[in-house]
Amino acid sequence: MGAPVVHFEIGAANGDRSRRFYADLFGWTVTPFPGGEDYGVVDTGSGTGIGGGIMQAPEGMQPWVTVYVGVDDLEKSLSRAEELGARRVMGPAPVGDMGEIAMFADPDGNILGLFAATREATPAEQ
């Protein structure tokens, strides 16, 4: 079975501005993530594709856009990525009770995320 892209994320220089921009541009609904005021969960309203999030980039970090790939085992996937020339960037780290995330930089420096679910996300969380 393949590893699907399950989530996108936009790390913005100005989180509030970017949440308004994408909501206005595409008609997305962006709601605060419970307990994470700086993270807005995106519902595209399309019924297809994936949901995502728009967040304030931490101070000192450049803005980014990344995708998260669903995997069964974060450590196994991170180790394999490293064997293939990637560099671990963060994680694994918990995401509430939904699962864990990790990130790596591919050999060209592109940042990709990994997500291992411990439960099915509700539509508002996707």
Rank of each mutant, 00 (worst) to 15 (best):
G36C: 12
G36M: 14
G36K: 13
E37N: 12
E37Q: 13
E37P: 14
D38H: 11
Y39S: 07
Y39Q: 05
Y39M: 08
G40N: 09
G40S: 04
G40M: 07
D43C: 01
D43G: 06
T44C: 05
G45H: 11
G45I: 08
S46M: 13
G47P: 09
G47R: 06
T48Q: 12
T48R: 11
G51W: 00
G51M: 04
I54R: 02
M55H: 02
Q56S: 10
Q56C: 02
A57L: 02
E59N: 11
E59I: 07
G60L: 02
G60Y: 02
Q62R: 13
Q62M: 14
W64Y: 15
W64T: 14
W64N: 13
V65P: 05
V65A: 13
V65T: 14
T66E: 09
T66A: 13
T66W: 00
V67Q: 06
Y68C: 02
Y68K: 03
Y68M: 11
V69N: 00
V69I: 15
D73M: 08
D73N: 14
L74H: 04
L74W: 03
L74P: 00
S77A: 15
L78R: 00
L78M: 13
S79R: 14
R80E: 15
E82K: 12
E83R: 11
E83A: 12
L84Y: 08
L84S: 09
L84W: 06
A86C: 11
A86D: 04
R87E: 14
R88D: 03
M90C: 09
G91V: 02
G91C: 07
G91A: 09
A93C: 09
P94E: 12
V95G: 00
G96F: 04
G96V: 10
G96P: 01
D97V: 08
D97T: 12
G99C: 06
G99P: 03
E100S: 14
A102P: 01
M103R: 06
M103I: 01
M103N: 02
M103Y: 09
F104E: 01
F104T: 00
F104R: 01
F104V: 10
A105D: 07
A105L: 09
A105W: 02
D106V: 12
D106W: 06
P107V: 06
P107K: 03
D108A: 15
